[in-house]
Design a protein around this nucleic acid. Structure first.
Length: 420
DNA sequence: TCTGGGGTCCTAGGACCC
DNA sequence: TCTGGGGTCCTAGGACCC
């Protein structure tokens, strides 16, 4: 049996942990640049605020209904996520952290227990230790556990737990789940299935394997098995190293000058290098792209990108910044209003398997030492205290974050002071 | 004025090889 | 007149997820 533990309205719940005064008020969290709604408390959902709604369209409505609006604070959410996962890890040796707010727990060791009781205990412990409400679904496969979790969230808000074990329980769950709500069915597959009369998960499991294979590829075939109670999705305790790493952002304002965009690109390139070093990998290829804003129909549009093969795979910030800026130089054209820039690194290999070149002119030993020190210092201070010249200090490209909450758990000056 | 960011997996089709 | 067969690798694009 597998449990899926999912934090309820995670970002919105995080904002409440250190601000109990908004516990019963509707809360929404915005995407980067304060663009659109990406998380909502139950109260906000009940008001009819839609996922992805652009905030400028609903600002007035929010004011009327006392909706508490926050810029996204990933430092805070990441930190609280770690606390949740640590708490969960105390319950089972086998945990797969699936995303920032979800984890699968292997329940094989607890089959002699009452799984409902045990799940309620897990939920209470997370609430007590971290202050985040979770829902728990328990079932024989990951896909069914997801489904059970969804059911718990919807129908059992008090205990937030749903366990399906017997064939009858599974059957009942499948019957009550609309096809579009199955994990792995998006809008396109949903459309196709509805056209073929498949309305629920129960209808789906009646389909022939051939039909599913032909229309939904092997991915659909796996889903079919999972829904029938046959585990077909691998268990991954350690996240596999990333094959592609991307860092991109919209700018806080439209930019026209190459110098401003170059600073953004340098920052993104550095972030990619940091991510590479963190997973002990090197990349052989860098891509750079810039975008105009396609919502502005009055503007000329331009979406260039460039792929650069580096002579030797690397994770050095200075090298990757250098190549990224070279790329920008080639694709940048004046006369456009740019909205976004990004850097992607790919052809990723483990640090230990880099092919060195005969005519390499870079002092890699020295560079490596520099990067180690760089990472150490910035890890110590928890910010990017040390910076590369190309990153600059311009604020022009930076995010709009007008409603940012404090970093209660990661920045000393933001920690709560309790008066005695 | 204002519309997110970062990933994965799969397939089809072309290039290329023997 | 006739124009193989089997394979790999790579890329772009589609679909999905949180």
């Amino acid at each position: 049996m597998i449990a899926l533990v999912d934090c309820n309205n995670f970002y919105a719940s995080c904002e409440r942990v250190f601000k109990p005064s908004i516990k019963y008020l509707p809360v929404v969290v915005l995407s980067n640049n304060d663009g659109c709604v990406i998380a909502r408390s139950n109260e906000a959902k009940e008001l009819g605020i839609k996922m992805g709604a652009p905030i400028f369209q609903i600002e007035k409505f929010c004011e009327q209904h006392q909706v508490q609006i926050f810029s996204s604070n990933y430092t805070l959410y990441g930190s609280l996520s770690n606390r949740v996962m640590k708490t969960l890890a105390n319950f089972t040796p086998n945990i797969e952290v699936y995303s920032i707010d979800e984890a699968f727990l292997d329940m094989a060791n607890w089959l002699d227990k009452d799984l409902v009781q045990y799940s309620v205990q897990i939920k209470k412990t997370v609430q007590q230790h971290v202050g985040i409400p979770v829902s728990i679904g328990v079932a024989p496969t990951k896909t069914l556990a997801k489904m059970a979790n969804r059911y718990a969230k919807k129908n059992n808000r008090v205990f937030g737990v749903h366990v399906v074990q017997t064939a009858n329980e599974i059957e009942a769950l499948l019957t009550q789940t609309a096809i579009g709500d199955v994990w792995g069915i998006g809008t396109q597959h949903r459309k196709k299935l509805l056209l073929n009369g498949v309305k629920t998960a129960a209808d789906f499991v009646q389909l022939s394997e051939e039909w599913v294979r032909k229309n939904l590829t092997v991915v659909g075939q796996r889903m079919l098995n999972e829904l029938k109670g046959i585990p077909s999705i691998a268990w991954e305790e350690l996240p596999p190293p990333k094959k592609v790493i991307c860092t991109s952002r919209s700018f806080g304002e439209l930019l026209t000058q190459k110098e401003d965009i170059a600073q953004a690109v340098a920052n993104h390139a550095n972030k990619c290098a940091v991510k590479l070093r963190k997973q002990k990998s090197c990349a052989g290829v860098v891509q750079v792209f810039i975008h105009t804003n396609n919502f502005r129909t009055q503007d000329k549009q331009y979406y260039p990108s460039i792929t650069i093969q580096m002579p030797i795979a690397t994770n050095s910030s200075s090298e990757i910044i250098g190549y990224a800026l070279k790329g920008l130089n080639i694709i940048f054209k004046t006369g456009y209003n740019y909205k976004k820039a990004g850097v992607i690194v790919l052809d990723i290999v483990p640090e230990t398997q880099v092919q060195y070149g005969l005519f390499d002119s870079v002092d890699r030993v020295k560079d490596k030492q520099l990067m180690v020190s760089y990472d150490k210092i910035n890890a110590l201070f928890g910010t990017d205290l040390v910076r590369f010249a190309a990153q600059g200090f311009s604020k022009r490209w930076r995010l709009k974050q007008e409603k940012l909450s404090p970093c209660y758990t990661t920045r000393l000056s933001d920690v709560y002071v309790i008066k005695r």
